[in-house]
């Protein structure tokens, strides 16, 4: 068997998080060193993965790994990357590495982004989050995708609520967490509907997304279930009008968390919306493309206006503008199949 690179990339941050939590709390620099070492290794591995994919024939899913977990329910740990997820894995590697560096936090008072308060816990949660993000990008099993999705969202609450900006951190963290979990629950209902319908159509109990692509979902089914699945995930992509958790979260979050938030976490939403919503329910996507384009178009203008309003204190509002492009691109993509 080949080197299980995707599992290593995904579980390495979690492993590092576990190690860091076992280290003494006053050994701050050693903790940071472990964090940097793990982040560098992950960066190297994801870079290597990217190169391998580029140098290969660049078709279909590659580096596939599969391990049984709950075979009776058709839940398997199945990893694989394609042309969409490979760059995102590399992106996560880069953001993770730079995120560790920006949070390094020596005694210099000018380094505002540095984390000096409990770096051990901070890095552990950050890495748990990173592991979840990697997991979503490489999962080919719908159940595992949800599993990692929740892992990625949850540490965000702690990171913002503990290390965030004192004035709004509790409000922001709570708003973010509730919002994202509601979104993912809505999407989960859709995923279970797909799971069950596939069982009825083919007699196979499986969460494998590659199999689900050929499960023969009827046009009506797709029409009904596309919106919950897509929008449920797209909440994390900050789609208008379900975006308001995001500016608040950005304002409150520490710098490295903001980087993760904007750099990869929000990509996670758009990615999952594309992977599950558009790829498994393509007919539904075509039917609903008009609505998504309206949302995207509104978001662009709306976000731009908010970004240039006078006396703005929250400079992060400008990021709203960008949220629009992911889902907007999805809309355009399928408007012309």
């Amino acid at each position: 068997m080949n080197f299980p690179i995707l599992s290593v990339i995904t579980f390495l941050p979690m492993f590092a998080a576990a190690i860091m939590l076992m280290m003494p709390a006053n050994r701050k620099n050693e903790t940071r060193a472990v964090a940097l070492a793990a982040a560098s290794l992950d960066l190297l591995l994801s870079g290597w993965l990217y190169l391998q994919y580029l140098l290969g024939d660049m078709t279909g899913y590659q580096f596939i790994e599969q391990y049984n977990w709950l075979p009776a329910l058709g839940i398997n740990l199945k990893f694989g990357v394609d042309g969409m997820s490979t760059p995102l894995v590399l992106l996560t590697g880069i953001v993770m590495f730079t995120g560790v560096l920006i949070s390094w936090g020596d005694e210099d008072p000018h380094v505002k982004a540095g984390i000096q308060d409990r770096p051990r816990e901070f890095f552990a949660f950050l890495f748990l989050l990173a592991g979840g993000v990697f997991g979503v990008f490489v999962s080919l099993d719908l159940f595992m995708l949800f599993f990692f999705y929740e892992i990625a969202v949850f540490p965000m609450y702690l990171l913002i609520a503990i290390w965030g900006w004192v004035k709004t951190r509790e409000y922001a963290a709570m708003k973010l967490t509730l919002y994202l979990f509601i979104g993912s629950v809505v999407a989960l209902v859709g995923a279970l509907a797909m799971y069950w319908t596939q069982y009825q159509n083919t007699g196979v109990l499986s969460f494998d997304m590659i199999q689900m692509e050929s499960a023969g979902f009827s046009a009506t089914f797709q029409y009904i279930w596309f919106l919950p699945v897509f929008l449920g995930f797209a909440v994390l992509g900050g789609i208008w009008p379900f975006h308001n958790w995001s500016p608040d979260g950005h304002v409150a979050a520490p710098t490295a968390v903001s980087m993760f938030h904007a750099g990869v976490l929000m990509k996670l939403g758009a990615f999952a919306a594309l992977r599950v919503g558009v790829m498994l329910l393509p007919e539904g996507a075509k039917q609903w493309a008009w609505l998504l384009m309206i949302f995207a178009a509104v978001a662009v203008v709306y976000g731009a206006f908010i970004a240039f309003r006078p006396n703005r204190h929250e400079i992060h509002d400008r990021l709203l503008v960008r949220f629009a492009y992911g889902p907007g691109g999805a809309g355009r993509f399928h408007a012309q199949p």
């Binding site: 708003k175 308001n244 709306y302 206006f305 908010i306 240039f308 309003r309």
Partner: peptide, 23 residues
């Protein structure tokens, strides 16, 4: 007018008022 629209209509009314209001 653009500033006014951004501040009062889009931000205060729509974003903070309607959307956050619903939330």
């Amino acid at each position: 007018p653009a500033y006014w629209l951004a501040e009062n209509v889009i931000y205060k009314f729509m974003d903070q008022g309607v959307i956050d209001g619903i939330l």
